[in-house]
Every structure is written in C-alpha cells, then in structure tokens.
Design a protein around this nucleic acid. Sequence first.
DNA 1: AAACGTTTCAAACAAGTGTTTGAACAGTGT
DNA 2: ACACTGTTCAAACACTTGTTTGAAACGTTT
Lengths: 223, 223
Amino acid sequence: MGGGTQATPDRILDVAEAMFAASGYRAVSVRAITRECGVNIAAIHYHFGSKEALLEQIFAKRSAAINNARFRLLEACRAAPGRPPMLEQILEAYLRPSLVLPNGDAGARRFMRLRAILAHEHADMSKNLISKHFNHVSGTFLGALMKELDHLPAKVVYWRFHFLLGAQYFTLADPGRIQILSEGACDPSDSDTALAELVAFTAAGFRAPPSPHDALILGNVLP
Amino acid sequence: MGGGTQATPDRILDVAEAMFAASGYRAVSVRAITRECGVNIAAIHYHFGSKEALLEQIFAKRSAAINNARFRLLEACRAAPGRPPMLEQILEAYLRPSLVLPNGDAGARRFMRLRAILAHEHADMSKNLISKHFNHVSGTFLGALMKELDHLPAKVVYWRFHFLLGAQYFTLADPGRIQILSEGACDPSDSDTALAELVAFTAAGFRAPPSPHDALILGNVLP
DNA sequence: AAACGTTTCAAACAAGTGTTTGAACAGTGT
DNA sequence: ACACTGTTCAAACACTTGTTTGAAACGTTT
C-alpha cells in the first residue's frame, strides 16, 4: 500500500472508493471512474464484471481490516479489566477503527463514509453488503455491551446501539450540518475530538436508566 | 388535506415526496413520478419548472409545519418550568414533530426520512435546502439547550447536538440495521418507543460531564 | 519467430435521463 | 359565436447511463 504505481485493478478500486465516498454510488459513473484513472471504459467490466461487483470488492477489501482492528481492541479491553471504565473502553474499541485514520491512511474513514452514504442511498443493496461484512462484529460488541449493562433489558441496549450507529454514521458522512450550526467551531474531520466526544456522549446514553413509556409528557400539547 | 381527489400539482407533490422518501432523489425519475400519478411527463415541468424545483416545493411545504410544531412545543416547556426535567422536555419538543405522525398523517415522518436520505445522497443540494428551512429552529433549540447546560462549553453542546441529529436521522431513515441486529425486537417505525428511547438516551448524553481528550486510552494499542 | 493468453482500446449497443415543443383540449367571459 | 385562458398530450430533443464487442497491442513462452 502507499504511494507509487499500482496495478490497474487496485488503482480502479482505490479511485472508485474515493469517488463513491465523495458523491455516492449512483452519482459516479463508470466513465467518470475510468476517466479519472486514465484507463478505458471497458476496464471495469473486464477486471470486475460490473459496477456493482466493483462495489462489493471495495467492501470485501476494507471491512476485514476495520473489523480485525475492532476485535483486537476489544481483546485489549478484556486484558486489562481493572482499567476503568469498561463501558468507555468497549465503545472506543468499536468506534476508533472507523473514525481515526490508521497509519495515516485515509482509507478506513473514507470507506466508512461510503458505507454510511450507501446505507441511505441504496438501502436494499447495502443491507446485504453490511449484513454480510458487519453482522459478526456488531453482534460481538452487542454481547459485550449487554454483559456490561446486564441490568438493562436487551431491547433497550439494541435501541441505544442503534442510536450509537446513527451518531457514528452522521459523523462519518459529515453532511456539514455541525459546521454551519456551530459556525465552524466543530468539525467531524477532527477525528480525535470526534471520537472523544462520541465516546463520552454514548457512554452516558448507555448508562441512562431505562425510561418507561409514560415518561413523555408533551404528547397532548399538539392539536 | 386528507383523502379524496386533489388537484394535479398537489397530487404530484404528494406522490413525488413518497417516492423520493422511499428510494432517494436520483433514483426516482420524472417519468416514474408522472406515471404513478397517471399524468403526462410534461406535467412536472409545467407546474414546477424542473425536478429540482419540485423538491424545493416539497421542502417549503413540509418544513414550515414541522418547525411550527417544534416552536409550539418549546413554548409549552417554558409555560410549565416546574415540570421536571426540563432537558427532556426540550429534547422531546424538538424530536416529537419529526418522529411521531401528526393527526395520523404519515407526512411529516416521510418527509423527514426524505430529508435524511437527501443529506447523504445529495450533500451539496441539501445543505442549502436544510440551512434555508432549518437553521432558525435548530439555532433556537441550541440556545435553549445551552441555557439549560450552561456549565458545558458551547463546543461540547454543539457536538452533542450533532450526535442527536445523527441518531434522529438514522431512526428516520431506518436502513433496517436495528431490525437485523435485534432479530426483530426493535423497529424504528414504532414511533412512540423510538421517541421515548431517543429522548432518554440523548438526555443522558447531554448530561455527561465534559470529557478531556486524554480520557481515551486505547490509542496506543493499534500497531 | 511463431503462437500464446492477457490486457487495452475505440466504437457501438439498447435503454433511460431531464427537458422542450407545438398542437390539441377544456372551460370561461364577452 | 368567438377569443382567451390555463392545462394536457404525444413526440422529439440532446445527453448520459451500464454494458458489450471485436480488433489491436502487449509480454511470455515455446
């Protein structure tokens, strides 16, 4: 990996991932990708078979690396159980590999942004891809969280993990909303700050006592 | 509003909103919309001018209703300050109009899902639309939150509002992830539960003490 | 040098995109 | 009856989409 020249298929994978992450899957045509690579239009179909197969290759290549890092960090948590607080450790183990660039490579972050965009843009296609590549790691971390929060009903933990995913995706996709609202004070591409803030926020959210339905009070105000 | 027949432009607005919310903006063609409406292809350009202008009309029509409801609910909070806890009241005032169907109309929820999808699919276009229609209400609620959390640095409140937006969008867009992970136990289209869980989670997140950067501990574990 | 499988290329394919056009239609007021 | 308005329609516009094709160029091996 790194600089220099790379074989045509690898270069296509790289360029396509970058363009998909920047503009979405539908918006980027095979012509735009091959033009950017300086290769012929037919190259994508020769090397990968189709535009969709190219996307699947990107998923296969990236998700393994990210999930391996997550498992390694989760092991590191268990190796030092005395280091408080465990909930924050688990959350950081899950979030860090997707948010912070490994080895200065922008790859993982870029891919996770692509994943976030695809989840919204192409729901049916991405549902299969994400299930295939992320069900295992998500299930493992859900188990770890439930063990740590065994006083909570499983349903509540699922909901809170769902909110965690939403906050993570929104940070990775970075639609620019927080920059506008904070007038530039906050920037999701500041990975270290984003990670620290997200861990603190979600840890507190997971620790919240389970709320009964009738805790909502404004329901009868609207006409 | 309601059942029965409606004028052609209104019907186009309605059908287009539903189709955009279901599949995204790019994926739905003007031909598909007009076919679904049973009108001629030229109808969209005659009544609205362009496909993009149609989208803007949808935004203009919906955002006013949602934001009015939010302001009304925020006023209701202030009218009864003794009713604890105020933070949950503010959050519910912000979230309820987007999550729970008003008057049994699926409209607001559908539109907010469209907004969530558009934010990811068509970042540049939606940034302007969302700024135009939602900066005011977001700013007002940010102010209310900061007043309630005046012990926190403004930056931290911005970050946490950003996470709130992410969790909200993810719930509205409903990419199906939580159903898979929870094996059907949780469903974002169960609005009341989603609202109650989201308010409880984010309220706890906002109440978290500000975390120093060095609270992260796993940074040196990765190779 | 000849033959090989692999890779690249320009060109075309069929289908779909947003948009425009000019004629036909409806309804109302004079 | 006519003219004037707002609306609908089939057809075409110029363009882009993903994909396929068959010939040319390549580097190896025999």
